[in-house]
Nucleic acid binder design. Structure first.
Length: 551
RNA sequence: GGUCUAUUGGUCAAGGGGUUAAGACACCACCCUCUCAAGGUGGUAUCACGGGUUCAAAUCCCGUAUAGACUACCA
């Protein structure tokens, strides 16, 4: 009996060979230098900011080079699979307008691309054809170690302070006679298929990572499992080999936690004689927790989940800008010189990426976002809040739809100027900063006139109305002069300076008058430019709000 | 225990033998000013530690410490 008999016993239905698949998935027809990248999440939960960093890099690299960016669903661990996880990823990619060129979405029954299936559980036969070849060549073998046996091996290795794993003399079944293996399988024994490693732990090899540069590792000598007994699907390492080879990935962008698997991947590619893709191992995103720094956690840190940014209403491009500055710190300087360019016009350079983990700074995001929003047009801001509120604040959404032009004027305050006002960090805070402009929200409100006496307030408001101070066609200067003009009658100084020189001569100064008007109109003692606010509110609203206080 | 990696202000970081050790965010002060925001000007604050090589080390070498990742039939 031969190894071929063994392979046929294990995979009776696998007839296609590696060579067949190579023919089926020929090299991509792309221009020189085009990069093929992929986002390959396992559907085990919600999208993490670290995943997002990878996506942005994948996307930018593909766009930079007129290459291809595809999505692959790595669902080989069906026990951990979470319903709807890929659907959610699809929504995030759509939300950020970074849709893959190739994908397979079961939930909306949509597929695109010639290198699929893009869902690993649908690629079982392909993996098995590769494993079958290894079996025939004697480079893989069935292993009958039980869970208990492996546990005890691990324990003894830990006790003896040895390296942990199935290698050397611990690889009990690597040289088992074919006949015996066949018999055990026929008897229904459970087995996993392991790589028959030919590496030597004492030999080193050099490996070039695009972020970390040249690194040196010992060769892998562990007979890693490549196919699980539970479902016949490959392990991550083997699927990585087969998929990225057949899909012609040129650049693998993934988290740094994979660096330690390089010896395994190196051996796997070497075993088949395939050329390895280039690797971009990106740093972890960390979080400061008290005095300690740790990996950012979906469970503990709300900002680790991408949904956090959507709920808050950060503009998608602002989030991308913040992520790009983490990816390449020279991005900010580039952006200054190219304020209107697309982020994909920036050439991402893995070499310039920091190899150590970075704390994600929400203050920095706020600043980037504030800046970004300040350079939008009033229409764009209106669209942004409208879209956000549709999902997160329906009441406000109704108001916005009812007063589109009025709302846009509010967003336009101190906007169309060289150095625009920057006071919105995200869409969810806009309502809190503009509510008083809408009569619907300006009901049953309480005033806090600080130290101002209510009778004094009424006197100021009455004088303002009686003197017909508010004229809609007035310029800001005219408006301000009229406000000053009632100062004298009321016993206030027209200029702050005058007041400071002779504080005893006056009840107060122009600041007090404008503050009283401001609070009367908005209940707040700090608002944007009062002239703009009054212009937008209009004479009727102003009189109505004053009258309410006067009565 | 083993393997790999990293360490420049509060944060992101530039600099890879000679620099007053960039810049951005945050913070503070002042200016501007009808409040707020913005803007302007300025400021506080950094090369993990110990050895070596060198005329000269943040930069090169060796240790140490600390941190992180991996060490599964998880990805």
């Amino acid at each position: 009996m031969s190894r071929e008999d063994l392979a046929n016993l294990i995979f009776p239905n696998i007839t296609k060979t590696v060579a067949d698949y190579e023919k089926e998935y020929p090299a991509r027809n792309l221009k020189e230098g085009a990069m093929v990248t992929r986002f390959a999440p396992s559907p085990t939960g919600f999208m993490h900011i670290g995943n997002f960093l990878a996506v942005v890099i994948d996307y930018v690299m593909a766009k930079n080079s007129q290459g291809v960016f595809y999505l692959r669903n790595e669902d080989t661990d069906q026990a951990r699979e979470v319903e709807g996880a890929i659907e959610y990823i699809r929504q995030v990619l759509t939300h950020y307008d970074m849709n893959p060129d190739e994908y397979e979405y079961r939930d909306i029954n949509e597929t695109k691309g010639n290198y699929g299936p893009y869902i690993q559980s649908e690629r079982k036969e392909i993996y098995q054809a590769f494993i079958k070849q290894l079996l025939i060549e004697g480079k893989a073998y069935p292993c009958f170690l039980t869970q208990e046996e492996m546990d005890s091996i691990r324990e003894s290795q830990a006790r003896d302070k040895r390296r942990i794993g199935i290698y050397g003399r611990f690889a009990k079944y690597r040289d088992l006679a074919v006949e015996e293996a066949i018999e055990r399988i026929k008897n229904g024994e459970k087995y996993t298929i392991r790589l028959k490693s030919s590496g030597d732990f004492n030999r080193k090899f050099k490996f070039n990572d695009l972020v970390n540069g040249e690194m040196e590792f010992p060769e892998n000598d562990i007979d890693i499992p490549i196919m699980k007994s539970s479902n016949g699907l490959p392990t991550y390492h083997f699927a990585h080999l087969v998929d990225d080879y057949l899909m012609h990935t040129t650049h693998v962008v993934r988290g740094q936690e994979w660096i330690s698997s390089i010896p395994i991947h190196y051996e796997l590619f070497k075993t088949f004689g395939f050329k390895m893709p280039k690797y971009v191992h990106i740093p972890l995103i960390l979080k400061k927790d008290g005095e300690k720094v740790r990996k950012i956690s979906k469970r503990l840190d709300p900002e680790a989940r991408m949904s956090y940014y959507e709920e808050k209403g950060y503009p998608t491009l602002a989030v991308i800008e913040a992520i790009m500055t983490i990816a390449n710190s020279n991005y900010e300087a580039w952006r200054e010189g190219h304020p209107d360019a697309l982020f994909t016009d920036f050439t991402f350079s893995p070499k310039k990426m920091s190899a150590s983990g970075a704390l994600f700074d929400l203050d920095k995001l706020d600043n980037i976002s504030k800046n970004y929003i300040s350079h939008l047009t009033k229409e764009e801001v209106y669209e942004g809040v409208l879209n956000w509120s549709k999902k997160y604040d329906l009441g406000f959404n109704e108001i916005l739809k009812k007063y589109p032009d009025y709302s846009k004027e509010i967003y336009n305050i101190e906007r169309e100027q060289k150095k625009p006002r920057k006071d919105y960090r995200y869409y969810s805070e806009i309502k809190a900063k503009t509510w008083y402009m809408y009569d619907e929200y300006f009901q049953d409100i309480k005033y806090d006139f600080l130290n101002y006496d209510l009778e004094e307030v009424k006197k100021v408001l009455k004088t303002y109305i009686d003197n017909n101070c508010f004229v809609e066609s007035d310029t800001q200067e005219e408006w301000f002069n009229k406000m000053k003009s009632i100062c004298a009658d009321l016993g206030y100084a027209r200029e702050v300076k005058e007041y400071k020189e002779n504080p005893d001569k006056y009840k107060g100064n122009i600041i007090d008058i404008s503050n009283i008007i401001r609070i009367s109109l908005t209940t707040l003692d700090n608002t944007p430019n009062l002239y703009n606010i009054m212009q937008i509110l209009g004479k009727d609203r102003i009189i109505a709000r004053f009258s309410k206080i006067l009565n």
